[in-house]
């Protein structure tokens, strides 16, 4: 906003040629930024998948239990350890204040994660790779996921979800 109001009758005055040039320049820059923003959104590989289904916590829990029963290989502190084959659907469940299950994945293989919350908003954050996703209850977020390095990764909640929020840490093991 200009500090001083324009002179009376500015609307009727012709726009000077240098001002027209600047208006055109600004319009071209704005248009280029818009195209870049939309283009990068479509072409860049930084965006998570767009697949979201509506569900209910009960339904998702039932599906998750069936999925884990199929691929369960053990248990760690009462939490199932699940080793799905490449290209499988993998169910990850967030609830106050834990992530289930412990996942054992293969480096370079593709997985289709289904992530949902049982109660309130949680943040699905894989560390140290810093992949983040907000998880609301009532929705099944489908994320295609391909681990590119082996090792132990932590699944943190990065949306404050109550007094036990800081203890909400899950585990993903990626094997060679």
């Amino acid at each position: 906003m200009a500090i001083l109001a324009p002179e009376k009758g500015w609307w009727q005055k012709k726009v000077a040629s240098d001002e027209k040039t600047w208006i055109m320049f600004a319009a071209v820059v704005a248009l280029a930024l818009f195209v870049l923003m939309v283009g990068w959104h479509l072409l860049g590989k930084q965006n998570p998948s767009y697949i979201v289904y509506s569900t209910s916590p009960d339904e998702f829990y039932k599906l998750a239990q069936a999925n884990w029963a199929k691929y369960k290989v053990g248990e760690e502190a009462g939490i199932p350890v699940v080793q799905p084959p490449p290209d499988a659907d993998v169910f990850v469940l967030a609830s106050t204040w834990k992530w289930e299950p412990v996942l054992v994945l293969k480096k370079g293989a593709n997985y289709k994660f289904h992530v949902s919350s049982m109660d309130l908003l949680h943040g699905f954050s894989i560390q140290p790779v810093n992949m983040n996703f907000a998880i609301h209850p009532g929705y099944d977020y489908v994320l295609t996921f391909k681990p590119t390095s082996a090792g132990d990764f932590r699944l943190m909640c990065n949306e404050y979800c109550g007094p036990g929020h800081h203890t909400m840490i899950g585990k993903i093991k990626v094997e060679d």
Partner: peptide
Amino acid sequence: TIAPIPDALKAIILGGK
């Protein structure tokens, strides 16, 4: 406009081994 989980996918997940 968010669709529910497709029945086909549910059948695969619940369909056992």
